[in-house]
Simulated scan of single mutants.
Amino acid sequence: MDTTVVESWKDFMELSSRFEGWAFRGQQDARWHLQSSLSRYLHAYVSDKDQWRSREARAIRIFRRKAHNHVPWPKLLHDDLRCLGLMQHHGAPTRLLDFTKSPFVAAFFALERATSDSAIFALNTPALYDDRARPRHAPWLTRDTIDPRVKGNMEKYFLGNDNEVVWFGEPEEMDGRLIAQSGTFVVPGVIDRPLHRILDGYESDEPLLRKIVLPVALRADAMKWLYRMNVTNASLFPDLDGLARSIAVEIEMVWPTQTLG
Rank of each mutant, 00 (worst) to 15 (best):
F12S: 00
F12L: 13
F12W: 12
M13W: 03
M13E: 15
M13D: 14
M13P: 00
E14F: 09
E14V: 13
L15D: 08
L15K: 14
S16Y: 01
S16L: 03
S16H: 04
S16G: 07
S17P: 01
S17Q: 09
S17L: 04
F19K: 12
F19M: 10
F19I: 06
E20I: 11
E20Y: 09
E20M: 06
G21L: 06
G21D: 12
G21T: 04
W22H: 15
W22K: 00
W22Q: 01
W22G: 00
A23R: 02
A23M: 04
A23S: 12
A23F: 05
F24V: 05
F24G: 00
F24L: 05
R25Q: 12
R25G: 08
R25H: 07
G26Y: 01
G26E: 00
G26S: 12
Q27P: 07
Q27G: 09
Q27R: 06
Q27T: 15
Q27Y: 06
Q27E: 12
Q28E: 14
Q28G: 06
Q28V: 03
Q28N: 15
D29Q: 06
D29C: 08
D29I: 05
D29V: 09
D29P: 03
A30S: 15
A30D: 15
R31E: 14
R31W: 06
R31L: 12
W32H: 15
W32Y: 15
W32F: 11
W32D: 07
H33V: 02
H33G: 05
H33P: 04
H33E: 11
H33A: 05
L34Y: 03
L34C: 05
L34V: 05
L34Q: 00
Q35D: 11
Q35V: 08
Q35I: 10
Q35M: 09
Q35W: 03
S36N: 12
S36L: 04
S36R: 01
S36K: 02
S36C: 05
S37D: 08
S37I: 02
S37K: 11
S37H: 07
S37N: 10
L38F: 07
L38K: 06
S39Y: 02
S39C: 03
R40G: 08
R40W: 11
R40L: 09
R40A: 08
R40P: 07
Y41D: 13
Y41K: 09
Y41Q: 15
Y41G: 13
Y41C: 13
L42M: 14
L42P: 00
L42W: 01
L42T: 02
H43F: 08
A44M: 04
A44E: 07
A44N: 04
A44Q: 11
Y45M: 02
Y45E: 03
Y45W: 05
Y45N: 08
V46A: 11
V46P: 06
V46L: 09
S47W: 06
S47A: 14
S47V: 12
S47F: 14
D48Y: 03
K49W: 04
K49R: 15
K49L: 13
D50M: 02
D50C: 04
D50S: 06
Q51A: 10
Q51F: 04
Q51S: 09
Q51T: 03
Q51M: 10
Q51E: 12
Q51P: 00
W52K: 12
R53Y: 01
S54F: 14
S54G: 11
S54E: 15
S54N: 14
S54T: 14
R55F: 10
R55P: 00
R55A: 09
R55G: 04
R55L: 10
E56T: 06
E56M: 13
